[in-house]
């Protein structure tokens, strides 16, 4: 995961999303321990309070839980929860942007359909 300090997105949100991505990709598996606040802080050169703020979002959403004296762990079922959350956001984050850029470029709905089909085919060859 990468932290971009010049991004529009606050660093604590980037930390939270970075951890979500790592859970979704399986890099942080359910019931496994994630790195400590200190490790996030030192690794990304950010104030520990910022790292804590990012992690606390995920604790509040029950994606992570604290084990007293041990550290932070990924909740079981976190992957399903995140996947359905990301699916809900998919329309707003991707489809709405895709449609508004298409309108700017005078691309028709039909042209977009065929591009999506081509995208899925290319993805097949790649994987």
């Amino acid at each position: 995961m990468q932290i971009n300090t010049n991004s529009e997105k606050p660093i604590f949100l980037q930390i939270a999303e970075g951890i979500e991505d790592a859970i979704l990709s399986g890099a942080f598996s359910e019931e496994s321990q994630i790195p400590s606040i200190t490790e996030f802080s030192v690794n990304y050169k950010i104030n520990p309070a910022t790292a804590l703020k990012g992690i606390n979002i995920l604790v509040d959403n029950s994606i992570l839980y604290k084990k007293r004296g041990l550290g932070m762990f990924v909740s079981s079922g976190a992957m399903d929860v995140l996947r359905s959350k990301r699916r809900e956001q998919y329309f707003e984050h991707y489809i709405m942007n895709l449609v508004s850029e298409a309108k700017r470029l005078d691309l028709t709905e039909h042209e977009i359909h065929s591009m999506i089909e081509r995208g899925f085919k290319d993805e097949l060859y790649r994987s």
Binding site: T5, I11, I37, S41, V42, N43, K45, N47, P48, T50
Partner: peptide, 28 residues
């Protein structure tokens, strides 16, 4: 920067930094 944060995490203290390299240090 990394050593300072490591140190600060393990043993918090009040740190006041003056610098002209603002971009580099702002996230700390």
């Amino acid at each position: 920067y990394r050593i300072l944060l490591q140190k600060y995490s393990e043993k918090p203290c009040t740190i006041i930094i003056s610098t002209h390299l603002i971009d580099e240090i702002s996230s700390l």
